[in-house]
Amino acid sequence: MRTDVKLYRLNQRLLAELLHAAVTDADPLEVMPPVTGPSGWAPKRRAAFVQFHEARSLSADPLETTFAITVAEQVAGAARLCPLDGQPGTAEAGVWIGRAHRGAGVGTAVLELLLNRASAQGFTTVYVSTTPDNTAVRSLLSARGVVLVPDGDALTAHIKLITDPPVA
Rank of each mutant, 00 (worst) to 15 (best):
D27P: 00
D27G: 03
P28G: 05
P28D: 05
P28I: 00
P28H: 08
L29A: 13
E30A: 15
E30C: 06
E30P: 02
V31M: 11
V31K: 12
V31I: 13
M32P: 09
P33F: 02
P33Q: 01
P33T: 06
P33H: 12
P34C: 08
G37D: 07
P38Q: 09
P38K: 09
P38I: 00
S39K: 08
S39C: 09
W41M: 00
W41R: 09
A42P: 03
A42K: 10
A42Q: 15
P43K: 08
P43Q: 12
P43N: 11
P43L: 07
K44I: 14
R45Y: 09
A47W: 09
A47K: 11
A48I: 12
A48K: 06
A48G: 08
F49R: 05
F49V: 04
F49T: 04
V50M: 05
Q51Y: 02
F52W: 15
F52Q: 15
F52V: 01
H53S: 01
H53L: 03
E54T: 01
A55G: 15
R56V: 01
R56S: 10
R56W: 08
S57D: 09
S57G: 08
L58T: 02
L58W: 05
S59N: 07
A60I: 05
A60Y: 04
D61E: 12
D61H: 15
D61I: 10
P62C: 13
P62G: 10
P62W: 14
L63W: 14
E64K: 07
T66H: 10
T66K: 03
F67I: 02
A68G: 02
T70F: 01
T70E: 05
T70K: 10
V71R: 10
A72E: 12
A72N: 10
A72W: 03
A72K: 12
